[in-house]
Simulated scan of single mutants.
Amino acid sequence: MANNVKKIWASGKAVVNGWLAIPSGFSAEVIAQSGFDSVTVDLQHGVQDYLSMVQCFQAMQAHPVTPMVRVPWNEPGIIGKVLDGGAMGVICPMINTKKEAEAFVAACKYPPDGTRSNGPIRAAMYGEATSYQTTANAETLCIPMIETQTAVKNLDAILDVPGIAGVYVGPSDLGFSYGMVPKLDRDEPEILKIYDKLLKACSKHGIHAGIHTGSASYAARAIGMGFRLVTLMNDSGLMQTAAKAGVAQIRKEAKGVA
């Protein structure tokens, strides 16, 4: 059970992450063949449920992508369940304090590092049933989301929690919490200062920073800033962007006939 995200991070390079909002194994299969290093099933804001997550994992398994999940909330039942279903990384929203970060890590890790219940019903297929437990704590990634003023204030305390492999910026909620319009690709000086602060803190703690982006150009820019995991939109957003561009091109080149 080797985690490709960990290997890429160890090499000093950045992970390009796909994102699945559509509850379809076929969509997952298409995204998994598109060159991403990892693919995340979104159980928080996507139209996914647990069974569609498993179907997405099954469709992705033939391809060299690391399966991850954004859970709906910091709740041990769903965190353990997505790991049992085969997630190799868990992104958890709205982690605002050290206590919440500790609870998140505890839910992700088997004893003695945490309190995760044993029963890797599908995850055990990544290795022998008797060996999954010996590698899971090291290979599964705990990635709390930093997306509020409170989280920024408590950043160093959150990063001090053992077991955290990375943090993930939610730009929309982060800006929203500062009274700004919720959007992904942010240029406000005060937000860019927060990014700089976060990246420096992560570097100090030996932790990798990730961010959700709304365009390939901003994703590349984020890598230049120092982010080491960038998500490019999601499957529905990519489909809509391509569809709108195609329709617009047809109407333009049809010279008013369409």
Rank of each mutant, 00 (worst) to 15 (best):
S117I: 11
Y178H: 07
K183S: 14
D113W: 11
V152C: 14
A209I: 06
M233T: 10
L198M: 15
G119P: 08
A216G: 02
P171F: 06
G210L: 08
T115M: 08
L238S: 03
R221W: 13
P171L: 12
R221V: 00
P171S: 11
A165S: 14
L184V: 02
A201C: 09
D156K: 14
L198F: 10
E147H: 04
G166L: 02
A124N: 12
I164S: 00
A219D: 02
L159F: 09
P111S: 14
E190H: 14
L238Q: 01
S236F: 03
I223D: 03
I211D: 00
N137E: 07
G214H: 05
S172W: 09
E188F: 10
I211G: 02
L159I: 11
E128L: 13
P111T: 14
E139P: 01
M145Q: 11
S215D: 06
E139T: 08
P171T: 09
N234C: 12
N234H: 13
I207T: 10
V167S: 05
A222C: 15
A209T: 07
S131W: 10
T134V: 11
D235H: 03
S236I: 10
D187S: 13
A222P: 02
C202V: 10
L155G: 06
S217V: 14
Q149P: 01
V230R: 00
H205T: 04
A219G: 07
P120R: 01
A136P: 05
N234Y: 03
G175E: 03
S131V: 13
N118I: 14
I164V: 14
S203A: 15
V169R: 01
D160I: 01
N234E: 09
Y218V: 01
P144K: 07
S236L: 12
S177M: 12
A157G: 00
Y195D: 07
I211A: 00
I121W: 14
L159D: 03
K183G: 09
I143Q: 04
E128P: 08
S117W: 04
